[in-house]
């Protein structure tokens, strides 16, 4: 696809700090290359704002190759924009047309308070992970191949769950701001492997308890999380978490 240059209008959420009320601001950008990524377009906007002696738009970003989970924009009513299976940094301006108005908002959730402009505090995810998303023993050096047999399909399934980059698009997309897909992915990746079995039940109990404590909503099974997930993580992991949680609650020694 050959490069074009388009003129766009942006409606961007601006909020000075956590306690500021915030509002939508309109900006016009002309001659935007369609080869630019969405974040490069935002950089261009920020250069323009800086030259005009205005505050640039604060937004999270890091690797810019779709693997770190830092970028987090809610674009035209969808987390990471309209493309399936990509993060905002992998969304390119060729997806948009000349004259388009693009609405850019932060993730919205009580558990993800806005810190500034488009940056939200996603440490709630870290705390869920800290509650049990790990294996407590020292695993030591890499074991011999096949020392611990793992069926291929389990390894694949665990790997699909482990692809979660913790970006929070699931929470942003869910009408209930539920963190089930994230938590389920983290529970699943260990539940499917032999190394995760020893703490399987303790893990799911602790992680769900922390998820609830953070103020995320419950699951309505709309499937929006999975549809918007840049790593296309399946809601079958949520069913696994539900099974494990009920199994854990009804059989674990924690009264």
């Amino acid at each position: 696809m050959s490069e074009r240059h388009i003129n766009i209008k942006l409606k961007v959420w601006r909020q000075k700090n956590k306690s500021d009320k915030g509002n939508m601001e309109e900006y016009a950008l002309s001659g935007v290359s369609t080869d630019m990524s969405f974040l490069e377009m935002m950089d261009t906007l920020n250069e323009k704002l800086t030259k005009e002696d205005k505050q640039p738009v604060a937004f999270d970003h890091d690797c810019r190759e779709g693997i770190c989970g830092m970028c987090s924009m809610y674009i035209n009513g969808q987390p990471h924009g309209p493309l399936k299976g990509v993060t905002t940094c992998q969304l390119h301006m060729r997806t948009f047309n000349d004259g388009d108005t693009i609405v850019v908002e932060p993730w919205r959730s009580a558990a993800f308070p806005v810190l500034k402009d488009l940056i939200v505090d996603r440490t709630a995810f870290d705390r869920i992970q800290h509650a049990g998303g790990f294996i407590s023993i020292n695993t030591g050096a890499a074991p011999d191949a096949n020392a611990i047999p793992v069926p291929k399909e389990n390894a694949d399934e665990a790997f699909l769950a482990a692809q979660c980059i913790g970006c929070g698009a699931c929470v942003a997309a869910c009408k209930n701001s539920s963190a089930m897909l994230f938590t389920a992915a983290k529970v699943s990746q260990y539940a499917l492997l032999p190394q995760g079995q020893a703490e399987r039940y303790r893990r799911v109990e602790a992680m769900v308890a922390q998820m609830d404590k953070e103020g995320f909503g419950a699951c309505t099974n709309t499937g929006a999380c999975s549809a918007e997930c840049p790593k296309e993580i399946s809601i079958s992991h949520i069913a696994r978490m539900n099974r494990d949680y009920l199994g854990a609650k009804s059989t674990s020694n924690a009264i």
Partner: peptide
Amino acid sequence: ENKKARPVGYFKENGNANSKWYSRSM
């Protein structure tokens, strides 16, 4: 409770892109 989990809503939402209207309207 689910309503409380998102105190500030979105300016623009495109729910039909990722879910069915009746799933969101239970």
